[in-house]
Design a protein around this nucleic acid. Structure first.
Lengths: 206, 206
DNA sequence: GGTGTTTCGTTCGGGTCCGAACGAGACGGG
DNA sequence: CCCGTCTCGTTCGGACCCGAACGAAACACC
């Protein structure tokens, strides 16, 4: 059904998302597939029922846990989308990366903190943290100092400049978090957080 | 309350997660804070009510949308945890990265597909895709060929070796997805997927 | 039928990101 | 007091990741 969403005329600008694919020749299986299965007013990212059908065909007969697959895929997609959004709208203007922000956040919240704890809280490896802290330190937002009682450990704290940045930046970041979850009710947000926490606990060494 | 979870005696091995911090000297604010606010049998990753309290103190007076913050934080934490789990348990034995797997998956599902569509479906930039496809091509899992009608475009498809790998690997991957969401009911999984999709749609240029 | 304009994939630089290997420091038993 | 063991943070190699800049191909309009 519907044969005319090709050729991206004056309707949809030149953008070529899968739902609006100019590939008329049939060399591109995607455009062919989308063209034959698209329902009106596309729910972009058709990785739902259509993907299910394709997978079922490919594994014909084998049992597939579609509910779990959909849950996991959407966790990752949402996380990626939210990250990119916050990065480009809030962090990029201040020349901060997502990870840089998270590290700054952890140090801001927890005060004088050892690097190994920062790594755990930020969810990155200690090797990565060394580089990130180096970057932030070079920018004058963070300070490193040796632990007074154990020369192996390193304590990290925010500089006044870093603290000032967080006070300015956090409200903006939080407002963008509100926007991102704008379409959700308070109950939905709570349920979402609770459900995701169950998933994280199932996976993490807890 | 509770004064004796320091020193990591014979009880908890030498692991030093924030809840079990040997920092006795008080130089580490984290250990101090955890020690004073920890409730019995720790819900590791105390970034919930405790973080809320710390943030409220830091921004004293400013309004903070805690529900949205908790939702966003848990999306990212869960996604990261799930990714690392699947990477180490399923992908690493086959020397595949997460992104490599996603790209392989997209090409597997959609057949002969243009690279720009792969990038959109995989959620990465076209610049990144060039490198990933190069890696997978070098490993003989993927094939590149020029579009017959448009020399600018590039079509990608799986090699027999790549197809064979997917048939073997997907059931394992899917089983791990089931494990990750094991603690969720079918209804919870569906709600989770639906809620996350709303978030993704709010953020993505839709 | 040229000549801008747009759309491809690629290249490049800088910044993560991880696991493995490493060296220094702390700590234990003998 | 010394030596094995453990635990730190750092370093390293390889892969990913993005946005900007680029060259080639297709298209637009005259």
């Amino acid at each position: 059904m519907s044969t005319a969403q090709h050729r991206s005329g004056p309707d949809g600008e030149g953008v070529c998302v899968p739902d609006n694919c100019p590939c008329e020749d049939g060399a591109c299986t995607l455009s062919k597939y989308v063209r034959t299965t698209a329902d009106a007013s596309g729910d972009h990212h058709h990785t739902l029922a259509e993907t299910e059908k394709a997978v079922a065909a490919l594994l014909s007969g084998m049992p597939v846990d579609m509910e779990s697959m959909a849950a996991v895929q959407n966790i990752y997609r949402a996380a990626n989308a939210v990250r990119k959004r916050l990065e480009s709208s809030v962090l990029a203007p201040h020349d901060l990366t997502w990870t840089g922000w998270v590290v700054l956040w952890v140090v801001w919240i927890w005060g004088d903190i050892e690097t190994r704890h920062v790594a755990v809280e930020a969810g990155i490896s200690k090797g990565t943290l060394t580089g990130v802290v180096g970057t932030l330190e070079k920018r004058g937002l963070l300070r490193r100092r040796t632990h007074p009682d154990d020369a192996r450990r390193v304590l990290v704290s925010l500089t006044p400049k870093g603290r000032k940045l967080m006070v300015v930046l956090f409200p903006t970041f939080n407002a963008e978090e509100s926007f991102v979850t704008e379409t959700l009710s308070a109950a939905e947000k709570a349920t979402l957080a609770r459900t995701l926490r169950k998933v994280a606990l199932q996976v993490e060494p807890g």
